[in-house]
Design a protein around this nucleic acid. Structure first.
Length: 797
DNA sequence: TCAGGATGTCATCGG
DNA sequence: AACCGATGACATCCT
């Protein structure tokens, strides 16, 4: 019976929304007002207590006193208006996911098969399987199509996959096309399968339709765009299907052994990390049209295209993924380890890895380079990246000796020894270029030793060692890079370039939980709620004037826009508990508290119940009542029951939401006893406080979410800076090598008056400020350089 | 039965 | 002073 009711309800809601989409006036009141109060909340929200209803505005515009709050006309008006407003909001790109979740009503059993849903990004608040979920969404495989998913990762298997996937795609298309023809039995069957999946940890929320999907459906783009959008949609569907759970397309059973893909809506950093994981720990996947996951085996450039182009729209970041921080840390550790490994084994590999970042910009570079961190397990990646690097960067690493200044080589024992030797030879290495502005950045080779001119090649490459240290001490090395001539302009420029990727990445200022985004989309929700004040029959209707709501906005900015999201989350909590499975904080939100449920009976009934004394409500609940009375009591809150018992002649919503003047006026109209007056005031106080508490909790939650998002963003920035630092170090090293080669070339060609070469131990090249190069005895250069150093030290002091 | 989360309620504070 | 919102603390309910 419950199933019947549920399906009827859901179907009704879908039909209603469909009618709203085509502009047909919807009459839900028959269903909303009487027998299915939960349905009302499904559509209108869990409780009007969660919405800051613009009560004053309502009265001003509609003469609320003329229409009883529980009037069917009023409900009809607001219901249709609200639905239409929500429909209109669907074409907003920045509609935050919690708001989208309102459209869970589209969640059909059919959508499971078709996977025609876009998971609400923000719902990915993380969860136990956060990493898997993320992985899922990035893997546009078509497991729902019915094909047996591959269990192993095949970097070079795109072609075969493409061929094998096509039928799956059509299969999926058929499934989607056939959704409308599903019978009740089909729905039940699908639901059963669904439940199995849900029991295995997948939530239904992932099957939500998205506004973008609707948008793509509604816009009817040109054939090419349509085809592309369709492909994107399929891709997204595949993503969502996976994100929900790995489901066998034929049986609908979960495939727990599969490692899902990464969500496209996740942050780039996560994506790249999970790409790394893909490369490191291969897993089966099939990608017919969007090779995003497969791209791991392709060039990094192509790797980026998948998320960006296939998504079509810049996805706003998700709500924080709670466990992802830990996963991120783990991934970073893996990256570091692997990168060190690569550095130790293949210099070219490292260079190619980092060079990708220079060739691409934004998140593409980031993901691309990071994606190739899994080189140890993907030779294909290595070669391709190497070729990429060779095409763009001069080779320099292996053929050329690497020279570092003492600071850089502090961990390199041979280098340190060598430098000490050079220093002992009455010439300071730094003094060689001490007078130049290249000091410190381009340190000359230890030419002072006659035998050391070409000795550097035998030295072990200290770079890898240094990189290891750099990984261990990021900040100090970053500072070191700065000290080595990395000017602020370059850094900022590079910063900007790398920041350009935040369009698709998590940006704290544009996060879904950030004030900006939530304001844009939620303000609409707030405005809609302000005009479509939904009267909760319980009476917990928020009221506020427009000025009040306007005053709330800055506060939203301060706390992260809690107000709109509050509505959304709370609405979600009463729509379908199953959709909250992916949201750990809200997993248990589906309680059946009846406080906010509408009154099913008017006060005219005057049920003669004993006056509850507040503390004995539980006993009162358990007291023997007539079934009808029991039902009514279950439908109403305590205060409603109290009000009924005390024969309060007006509704609780009026008691709670009327302005104080009108509330007093209302009290004066009716001659109430002291007990009644006390009860009315208590009801008002409790009702207001209930809403306040809900707001407060929502604000807390949003604050936590924002903080988590901030932490996530900071981690992402840290990873990005670390990568930048490595690039800088690499470029510095290249420049050093160039300078060294030029220095040696010039120096060896110099001849004195007798035609003899200058001994490097006695002479060195000195760069002057005007750009000329002089050859000077080292004793002189030492004297010259020591003085400026002292002066600089004095200046520093 | 217990734990944990959601929610309601009270007391209190500050605007 | 009254009103109201915010919030900590506690109780209750539910899963």
């Amino acid at each position: 019976m419950l199933y019947l009711k549920k399906y009827f309800t859901e179907g009704l809601i879908q039909f209603t929304i469909l009618l709203s989409l085509i502009g047909v006036r919807v009459d839900l009141d028959t269903y909303l007002s009487n027998q299915l109060p939960p349905l009302r909340e499904i559509i209108l929200g869990p409780s009007s207590a969660y919405t800051q209803t613009q009560f004053h505005n309502l009265r001003n515009t509609l003469d609320g006193y003329g229409i009883h709050p529980k009037s069917v006309d009023l409900d009809q008006f607001f219901t249709t208006r609200r639905l239409l407003n929500q429909v209109r909001q669907l074409d907003r790109l920045s509609v935050p996911s919690p708001e989208l979740s309102t459209w869970l009503v589209h969640r059909d059993p059919e959508t499971v098969v078709s996977a025609a849903s876009q998971s609400s990004p923000s719902i990915t608040l993380d969860n136990g399987a956060g990493l898997e979920d993320v992985n899922n969404s990035e893997t546009p495989t078509m497991r729902g199509g019915g094909g047996a998913p591959e269990s192993t990762y095949n970097p070079s298997g795109e072609d075969s996959n493409l061929g094998a996937v096509a039928p799956e795609d059509s299969q999926e298309q058929r499934n989607r096309d056939g959704n409308d023809d599903l019978t009740k039995e089909d729905i039940d069957l699908i639901d059963i399968l669904w439940r199995q999946d849900i029991d295995l940890g997948a939530g239904r929320e992932v099957f939500n339709y998205s506004s973008r999907q609707k948008e793509s459906e509604a816009e009817k783009p040109s054939p090419e765009e349509e085809e592309r959008a369709e492909a994107q949609e399929r891709w997204r569907n595949g993503v969502n299907l996976q994100e929900a759970q790995p489901v066998d397309g034929e049986t609908g059973e979960s495939i727990p052994e599969q490692i899902p893909g990464l969500g496209s809506q996740t942050s780039p950093s996560l994506q790249e990390c999970l790409r790394l994981l893909e490369a490191t720990f291969p897993f089966g996947e099939e990608s017919p049209e969007f090779p995003a996951p497969v791209v791991t085996a392709e060039l990094a450039v192509a790797n980026e295209e998948a998320p960006s182009t296939s998504l079509g729209l810049p996805l706003t970041p998700l709500l924080p993924q709670l466990d992802l921080e830990q996963q991120w840390q783990d991934i970073m550790a893996i990256m570091e380890l692997q990168e060190m490994e690569v550095n130790n084994t293949s210099e070219n590999s490292f260079l190619s890895t980092t060079s990708n970042s220079t060739n691409t910009s934004g998140s593409t570079s980031e993901s691309g380079s990071v994606g190739s961190f899994g080189l140890t397990n993907s030779s294909t990646l290595i070669h391709q990246d190497v070729s990429l690097h060779q095409a763009s960067l001069p080779s320099c690493s292996q053929d050329f000796p690497t020279l570092f200044n003492p600071e850089m080589d502090a961990t390199s024992t041979p280098r340190t020894t060598l430098l000490r030797m050079s220093s002992s030879n009455s010439s300071n290495v730094n003094s060689t270029f001490g007078a130049t502005n290249l000091t410190g950045l381009f340190l000359p080779p230890p030419l002072n030793s006659t035998n050391n001119i070409t000795c550097t090649p035998v030295l072990p490459d200290p770079f890898s060692t240094m990189l290891e240290e750099s990984m261990l001490d990021e900040i100090s090395l970053l500072d070191l890079a700065m000290e080595e001539g990395f000017n602020q302009a370059q850094a900022s420029q590079l910063e900007d370039e790398l920041d350009s990727d935040s369009g698709l990445s998590l940006d704290s200022s544009h996060s879904p939980v950030s004030p900006s985004s939530s304001e844009t989309s939620c303000s609409s929700a707030a405005s809609s709620s302000s005009t479509s004040a939904t009267f909760s029959e319980e009476g917990a209707v928020g009221y506020s004037t427009d000025s009040e709501s306007a005053a709330v906005e800055p506060e939203e900015g301060a706390v992260g826009g809690y107000q709109p999201e509050f509505n959304k989350l709370c609405r979600m909590s009463y729509q379908d508990p199953s959709q909250l499975h992916g949201l750990p904080q809200l997993d248990n939100i589906n309680h059946n508290h009846t406080y906010n449920l509408p009154l099913s009976s008017s006060f005219d009934e005057h049920l003669e119940l004993p006056i509850p004394t507040g503390k004995n409500m539980v006993r009162e609940k358990q007291s023997k009542l007539k079934p009808q009375q029991d039902f009514l009591d279950k439908q109403s809150s305590r205060d409603e029951r109290r009000a009924r018992a005390m024969k309060i002649p007006f509704s609780n919503e009026k008691i709670i939401n009327l302005p104080v003047e009108e509330f007093n006026e209302l009290l004066s109209k009716h001659h109430l006893s002291e007990a009644q007056l006390a009860l009315v005031r208590d009801i008002r106080r409790r009702g207001k406080n209930k809403m306040a508490a809900q707001n407060c909790r929502k604000r807390k939650l949003d604050t936590i979410i924002n903080l988590e998002q901030g932490v996530h963003d900071l981690r992402r920035d840290k990873a990005r800076l670390l990568k930048e630092k490595m690039e800088f170090i690499r470029s510095i090293r290249q420049m050093k090598q160039k300078v060294q080669s030029l220095y040696q070339e010039v120096f060896t060609q110099l001849r004195d008056e007798e035609g003899q070469p200058y001994p490097p131990s006695e002479y060195s090249l000195q760069y002057s400020a005007d750009g000329s190069v002089l050859i000077m005895p080292r004793t002189m250069t030492d004297q010259q350089t020591r003085k400026p150093e002292k002066k600089q030290k004095d200046k520093k002091k």
